[in-house]
């Protein structure tokens, strides 16, 4: 079954993130000197209407922080986020509320975001209550409706979170975001806690709903095969920065940044007969974001690093049409 992609992706981005920084102050090693964790350190990208933008990186690269900061679930340190021409970071708490309806979030673990003593129906209606939408009857009707939309039955309305399977809970997480008719859904690892079969059901559902409800996704995940499957464009993050960005097929055909190359080659392929790929095995671990390397943050693990990489931060620039990379050697 081929899913026709609905959209003419428009040129003007729906969301434009510009120079976003999120720094945390942490106690230093001794407990006295304070130091700064640059969780997100100057990220810029566009989210175009109707597309899925995949954000990939290893744990600690700042991809989840980025997602949360856009919605101001945690306040940004610096930068701008224009949604339909309005800078979300400049809004007061109250006026932000109106935009929150249009930008929703789905989390990895819905079990921890659902109240264990609240039935599913209440959890689904809560966003409507918060935003003052409809009366009790109408809200219940919408909740029943959204349950069907995400492939559940009406009797799930009366269940408690612990009575649901992981896949069902994740559908509730999605339903709860969708009940407000958002335009953008930021999905933070929405399928990584699920078994492969449940995961594939969920991915299919998310794609179907994107077309039906004209959604724009920011899809944050570490599973590269999943991100490839669902995304139109992909951004790769390393230690708080975007190191590469390209349309999906272009990125896989032609990865330019050494980190992207390593990441793609590290994914185990379920085909034992594939000619043994040249797997680039990296030395060492992700450096601590408390003390990131100078210059290009990847230079300590990069097989091609030169002296320049240790000194100068590479600029994230266009290397071919729509393909950005931050590397001195590209």
């Amino acid at each position: 079954m081929t899913i026709a992609k609905h959209q003419e992706v428009s040129a003007e981005p729906l969301l434009r993130v510009n120079g976003l920084k999120k720094h945390y102050t942490a106690a230093g090693k001794t407990g006295f000197r304070r130091s700064t964790v640059k969780a997100v350190d100057g990220v810029s990208f566009d989210l175009r209407e109707g597309e899925t933008y995949g954000l990939v990186g290893e744990s600690g690269c700042g991809k989840s922080t980025l997602g949360k900061t856009i919605l101001r679930l945690t306040e940004p340190t610096e930068g701008e986020a224009f949604y339909r021409g309005v800078d979300l970071f400049k809004q007061s708490r109250r006026s932000l509320q109106a935009y929150r309806r249009e930008l929703q979030m789905v989390f990895q673990d819905p079990f921890s975001s659902l109240n264990p003593r609240q039935i599913v129906g209440q959890a689904l209606e809560e966003p409507l209550v918060i935003h003052g939408i409809g009366g009790p009857k109408e809200r219940t009707a919408r909740a029943m409706d959204i349950l069907r939309t995400v492939g559940l039955q009406q009797d799930h309305y009366y269940r408690l979170p612990h009575e649901l399977s992981g896949g069902q809970r994740q559908r509730i997480g999605l339903a709860r975001a969708l009940i407000l008719n958002p335009r953008i859904v930021i999905c933070d690892e929405p399928v990584s806690a699920l078994d492969v079969i449940i995961q594939s059901q969920m991915i299919n559902l998310m794609r179907r709903l994107q077309t039906e409800l004209k959604l724009t996704y920011l899809f944050i995940a570490h599973d590269i095969a999943v991100v490839r499957h669902i995304s139109d464009r992909i951004g790769i993050m390393y230690l708080g920065r975007l190191v590469e960005e390209a349309p999906t097929d272009e990125l896989f055909a032609n990865p330019r940044h050494p980190y992207t190359q390593v990441l793609l080659s590290a994914v185990p392929v379920p085909n034992p007969e594939a000619a043994k790929r040249q797997r680039i095995v990296l030395e060492g671990d992700l450096p601590s974001p408390l003390d990131p390397p100078s210059g290009c943050a990847f230079h300590t693990r990069c097989p091609y690093a030169t002296d320049r990489c240790a000194r100068e931060v590479p600029i994230h620039r266009e290397v071919s049409s729509g393909h950005m990379a931050a590397c001195h050697l590209v």
């Binding site: 081929t2 899913i3 492969v196 059901q201 095969a225």
Partner: peptide, 19 residues
């Protein structure tokens, strides 16, 4: 049901029904 790096992205993943 596993998305593959060489798979067809336009196709729906053939998922096993139920759980």
């Amino acid at each position: 049901s596993v998305p593959r790096l060489d798979g067809d992205r336009q196709r729906e993943l053939p998922a096993v029904p139920g759980s």
